[in-house]
Every structure is written in C-alpha cells, then in structure tokens.
C-alpha cells in the first residue's frame, strides 16, 4: 500500500512506515527515550532526505513521549517540578543548538560533526551504562543489597547554591546543575536531531541521583516539550515537516509506546539500563563503522538549498 508524501516528495509503503513507528515506539516506551536516534537513520535508509526525516521525526517523538508521559503521570512516576526546571535550560539549549547547527552547515562540516558526536556520545554513554548496570546486577545476585543512595556520597554538585526540594524525587539539590543538564540536552539534541532521552536518563540518575522510577517519566516531559518546540521551529523556518509521514509514524509510535511502557515495567531498573546501554552502544558502533570502514560510494550529491536540520 503506497502513499505519496507531500513534503518528502516520494511514495512510501504505509505498512512499512507504520511498522517502523511501532518498533521505535515500543523501544521509546520501554526505556523512556524519544527514539529519534533510531528513527532518523531508518527513514534515511528508506530514501527520505535527512532534512525531512529529522524534521518529521521530531513530531513523532513528541507524540510517543506524550502518550508515555501520561502513563507515567498516572502512576505518579514523574516529577513535574524537576521537569519544569529541566525545561528552562532545555529550551535555551535548543535555541543555541539550532544556531550552532546553522553555522556548522555553512562551514560544510556538519556531517562529520554529527557522525563524531553520535560515535563519541553513544559510545561512551552506552559503555558506561553497560558497565554500571552489570555491576549493579552482579551485586544484587551476590546477595548484597543494591546500592541505593548513600547519604555520605555527596558530590561537589550538592554543594552548589540555589537549592530546591523536589518532593516526588525526594531529593534536595541546587537547580544550577539541573538547568545545565537541560541546556546541554537541548543543545546536543538540536545539533544531532535527537530528543536526548538516552543522555538525560543517565545524567539524572548518576549526577542528580534522581530515583530510577521517576527518571523516565520526567525525561519524557522534557523530550515532549523540546520535540514539540522543534517541530514548530522546523516547520516555520525550513518548511520540511511532512505531516503525512509524521502522522503515520505517530500512530505506530504511540501504540508501540504503550506496549513498550508495559513491557518496561516488568524489568528492574538495572536490567533496563543494561538493555538501553547495549542499544545505545550498538547505534554508536554503527556510526563508528560508517566513519572507519571505507564507504561503498565515496561520492554523495546534495542540493545546496536543502536544509539538513
């Protein structure tokens, strides 16, 4: 069943795109990530131009994370105050990221920057998550109680001023690192065309010590708002959001996210972190492969007017 996409300007198989939405939605619901770092490469693979893919994926991610966030909200598994503080930094970061993106494009080194950032970020974050979660799982197996939060393990972060109490997360920390994390996620997300959930989740767990149960729902709120914001910005500036493509992806995505969220609830936090770590590392290695192995075709053709954000 083929349908012609009005902005991407080519026909696609509806069922294939729907299935891709389902699969990525499942993963995003399960791990509480947007799934942009999986969906964008998939769309490019089926022939959609990178620019249209990135712009349209933003709205798909917004839909999946909204449906996921509602689920977590019902289970009281998200912290609205923390999400609000993250958003302040997130929206400023997104705007700054778009500006740097435009600059890099003008310099002609955007591809390399994106490839290297994916490799470095996904590689390190993935390996760190795997190492940490394997340790946690081994500890639990060994009968020792899983290390929760030791009161004495205060880092320099906890010495910063402007402290605020986050009731749901049961933490009392400075808002400065939270704004900073929001900013970095928004900034990196705008450059790499991703929601940044896979970075945000470990950052909140390891740096701010937010309980794992609250992290995913909270991260979804940030992803939801930044991606909805990105959709509007992309549409207003580049005119590259394909609403038809977005709708098909969304329908698959929200259904997948529901099942993913339920499947995710059956795993422990450590197991989820291990699985997500493996996934993130795999995508990172995929980018490494592209950068290191000689490409089949050394040449690429790209229209000059085309925006690749």
């Amino acid at each position: 069943m083929q349908i012609y996409l009005p902005i991407a300007e080519l026909p696609v198989n509806v069922l294939l795109v729907l299935f891709m939405g389902l699969a990525v939605g499942f993963i995003s619901g399960m791990f509480g990530i947007g799934g942009g770092f999986l969906m964008t490469p998939l769309l490019i693979f089926i022939g959609i131009s990178p620019a249209v893919a990135v712009a349209s994926v933003a709205s798909h991610v917004a839909a999946s994370s909204f449906s996921g966030a509602i689920n977590y909200w019902r289970r009281r598994a998200l912290d609205p105050a923390l999400a609000g503080m993250l958003l302040i930094g997130g929206l400023i970061g997104t705007t700054a990221g778009v500006m740097l993106f435009t600059l890099l494009r003008a310099l002609g080194q955007l591809d390399l920057t994106i490839g290297l950032s994916y490799l470095v970020l996904l590689g390190t974050v993935g390996s760190m998550m795997i190492a940490e979660s394997v340790q946690a799982i081994l500890r639990a197996r060994g009968g020792r109680p899983a290390e929760i939060r030791r009161p004495g393990s205060h880092m320099w972060i906890h010495g910063l001023p402007l402290k605020m109490r986050f009731k749901v997360s049961k933490i009392y920390v400075s808002v400065i690192p939270i704004w900073l994390i929001g900013f970095v996620i928004g900034f990196i997300g705008a450059i790499m065309g991703i929601g940044g959930g896979f970075l945000l989740v470990p950052a909140l767990i390891y740096l701010i010590r937010v309980p794992t149960g609250v992290v995913i729902g909270t991260s979804m709120v940030l992803t939801l708002v930044t991606m909805a914001y990105a959709t509007v910005i992309h549409a207003a500036t580049n005119h590259l959001v394909d609403a038809v493509l977005a709708l098909i992806l969304m329908i698959g995505g929200v259904i997948g996210a529901q099942f993913g969220a339920r499947t995710g609830a059956r795993f422990s936090g450590e197991q989820l972190r291990l699985l997500l770590g493996i996934l993130v590392l795999a995508v990172g290695l995929r980018f490494a492969y592209d950068l290191i192995v000689q490409p089949v075709d050394l040449y690429t053709v790209r229209p000059v007017e085309e925006q690749s954000l």
Partner: peptide, 23 residues
C-alpha cells in the same frame, strides 16, 4: 509554516493523548 508546525505539534499531542485513553 508556523501554523502548519503548530497544527502538526497539536496533532502529535492529540495522537499521544488518544492512545493513552484507548489503552
């Protein structure tokens, strides 16, 4: 572009909300 983007974003929220109601 702006209205189109707002409409798409709204469509995303509606789809997400609908799914959470249905499921």
């Amino acid at each position: 572009g702006l209205f189109y983007g707002l409409a798409t974003a709204l469509m995303a929220l509606l789809t997400g909300w609908l799914a959470s109601v249905v499921f």
